[in-house]
Amino acid sequence: MVRLSTGTFRCVLLTPAGKLLDCKAGALVLPAHDGFRGVLRNHAPMLCKLAGGIMQVKDIVGRDDAFFLVDGGFARISENFVTILAHEVTTFEGMEREQAEKIVSEARSVLVGDAYIRTQTGTADAARAAQLVKLARLSSILSNE
């Protein structure tokens, strides 16, 4: 039987606006360009391009799991140190509940509104809005209906 690698590794999320996460995590799910990619301790050195999607950081030492909506970027894995570079990241962490709910309601209005039907750009916005609603569910902003 294959044993999964146990233990933690350092995970850092960097954006031009600042460092959004610096923690010791047990597992990481990255939205890679070719699908989701899991990272555990002792992962091989890798440089990977990210696509738009939700990044999940699990089994974080001393806190709950974290979720981020990443709009492309790169992940570099080297000697149990994962650095994620992303230009635009959305997270509900540290956000007031009212503000989070406003974002989610705007996302939902994109999903069901005219913009969804009307334009090509609307399609891109709708995809992002769907991801935002999913992020809200993962971050416990919304209950799993």
Partner: peptide, 18 residues
């Protein structure tokens, strides 16, 4: 040695834009 995903050219394309 790094595992590059996708190829170096494709990564560089995105990296240059970023």
């Amino acid at each position: 040695d790094f595992l590059l995903s996708p190829s170096a050219e494709k990564i560089f394309d995105s990296l240059a834009k970023m």
